[in-house]
Design a protein around this nucleic acid. Structure first.
Length: 272
DNA sequence: GTTGCGTCCTGGACGC
DNA sequence: TGCGTCCAGGACGCAA
């Protein structure tokens, strides 16, 4: 499932194909939840930059708007020649944009958890999570002290707080489990010390930076724009390893459900 | 305002 | 082999 490292990989590899290109036609899947039908609104605009905020891809347009794409759980963006015109009913196709160079950018999303929006530049009020999310984890604005203060401001479980995108942007289930394991913080803890928050801060940055270097984690659906897999699944210490020995102490890792989300952790290293 | 839970959605794993 | 059930999860809405 695309989290920050996967979205960053998509951004870097997609940018050369879309920046400077004019969108000559767009199409969005019409659904009852209207999550994709804004795709066509970008028609006629030129992409001037491709950025990212947390798990959101932000394509700046030359008419002071932004095309916002969230990949959800199973979404992927793929470039292909526009001569390969999407057929109506193509499996899992939710949106596409045809560019002036003859290429097509296709957005496929099997489970429809993704989303497409066209908004005035910098106005994210219609996307509450994007609007309210915390600092970028690899920016200087993400400080240990600020992170600790953000965690202290809530009584929710650490795992839930990380997934909320409020203390820090871009962390999903995989990297929340990895960071909590690395910092030896139990996912269900509601309060942690300043020192533990500082360790978790370091862990968040380390696991995300390593995953970006590995071009993301491919467990099931995630693919880069060229269809290739990431490599980070071979470097996971915790996520998906329930029932296997902890790489630190040898205790069998377990998984539990907290706030309707599965967490994998070491019951010995990560004391509640 | 905060918290926790339900909903959306469908492919894959699993059991019978 | 085929069918039914369960699980996975990010964002968001809603009730308490």
């Amino acid at each position: 499932m695309p989290e920050l490292p996967e979205v960053e990989t998509v951004r870097v590899e997609l940018a050369p194909h879309v920046v400077g290109r004019r969108i000559v036609e767009g199409w969005g899947f019409i659904s009852p939840t209207a999550k994709f039908d804004q795709a066509a609104a970008a028609t006629g605009a030129t992409v001037t930059a491709l950025g990212r905020r947390g798990k959101y891809l932000l394509a700046s347009l030359d008419d002071d708007r932004e095309l916002v794409v969230h990949l959800g759980m199973t979404g992927g963006l793929f470039v292909r020649p526009a001569v390969d015109v999407p057929e109506s009913g193509e499996a899992h196709l939710r949106a596409w944009w045809r560019f002036d160079d003859g290429n097509l950018l296709a957005f496929r999303d099997a489970r429809r958890f993704g989303r497409v929006a066209v908004v005035p530049a910098g106005h994210y009020e219609s996307l509450p999570t994007l609007f309210a999310q915390g600092p970028e984890p690899l920016d200087d604005a993400f400080t240990p002290l600020g992170f600790w203060k953000a965690l202290r401001a809530s009584d929710r479980r650490m795992k839930t707080q990380l997934l909320s995108q409020r203390p820090v942007a871009g962390v999903g289930n995989i990297y929340a489990d990895e960071a909590l394991w690395r910092a030896a913080v139990h996912p269900a803890r509601r309060r942690i010390s300043r020192a533990q928050a500082f360790e978790l801060h370091t862990a968040v940055r380390e696991v995300l930076a390593a995953a970006i270097a590995n071009r993301g984690t491919t467990l099931r659906d995630y693919r880069a724009p060229d269809g290739s897999r990431g490599d980070n699944q071979f470097h996971l210490d915790c996520y998906g390893r329930s029932g296997l020995p902890c790489r630190r102490c040898g205790t069998v890792l377990v998984h539990r459900t907290y706030d309707a989300r599965t967490a994998t952790f070491c019951p010995r290293c990560q004391r509640s």
